[in-house]
């Protein structure tokens, strides 16, 4: 006969272990699964759901979801790295052809400036560290010598699309575009190629 078996834990200990396990399962369920541990408020969750699925042909990254409100996910405490500003630039007010290689120039009240470029999908973004502060910020877009400047400042919105969605109406100025003059000599449209894989 060997040594006596250790005593089994008392019923209270087993009950405590069961309660702990159930609690952990409840937290996991509330977080929506193991892949997404961020607990979102219902309005944010609904906004993300309203975006719909990703385009299968476009990899998740700087080129995805052109024309959609980036700040739904790319916000402090959101499901993707936060942006300070982000959006998509189109050729003109009538077309929805996204414009690559457009300079997007931001300047804040203190005179701090940050310039970025649209990628092949027409998308651009500014990280919080690239233009620190809390606004307001004035922005212009340019592909030639003539910039197209937005008259009003941006105060707090991350996504251009929030105020610049289609169709234009009383509460929206329509999509962001490079020039009102279609024949103004804007750079040619181009598709995305291997060189764009690394572009921001």
């Amino acid at each position: 006969m060997g040594p006596p078996a250790p005593p089994l834990p008392g019923p209270w200990l087993r009950r405590a272990a069961l309660v702990t396990l159930l609690g952990q399962l409840a937290v996991l369920a509330a977080a929506g699964g193991c892949n997404d541990f961020i607990v979102l408020d219902p309005s944010r969750r609904n906004a993300i759901a309203a975006l719909g699925p990703e385009e299968p042909a476009v990899p998740v990254g700087a080129r995805h979801r052109a024309g959609q409100p980036c700040g739904v996910c790319h916000v402090e405490g959101g499901t993707a790295p936060p942006f300070r500003y982000a959006g998509t630039v189109y050729r003109d007010s009538a077309s929805v052809e996204a414009m690559p290689d457009v300079e997007v120039d931001f300047i804040d009240e203190a005179g701090r400036r940050f310039v970025t470029q649209t990628n092949c999908a027409g998308n651009f973004y500014v990280k919080p560290a690239e233009l620190p502060g809390t606004g307001p910020v004035w922005v212009s877009v340019r592909a030639t010598d003539l910039p197209y400047t937005m008259e009003s400042p941006i105060h707090r919105e991350i996504s251009c699309t929030t105020c610049h969605r289609d169709p234009a109406g009383p509460a929206s100025a329509g999509h962001v575009f490079l020039s009102e003059d279609v024949a103004s000599g804007s750079p040619p449209l181009r598709g995305c190629g291997p060189a764009d894989e690394e572009a921001r």
Binding site: S152, G169, P170, G174
Partner: peptide, 13 residues
Amino acid sequence: GRGLRLDAAATPS
């Protein structure tokens, strides 16, 4: 004129 419009047919631009 540069923000919210009252007329449903007007736009901020």
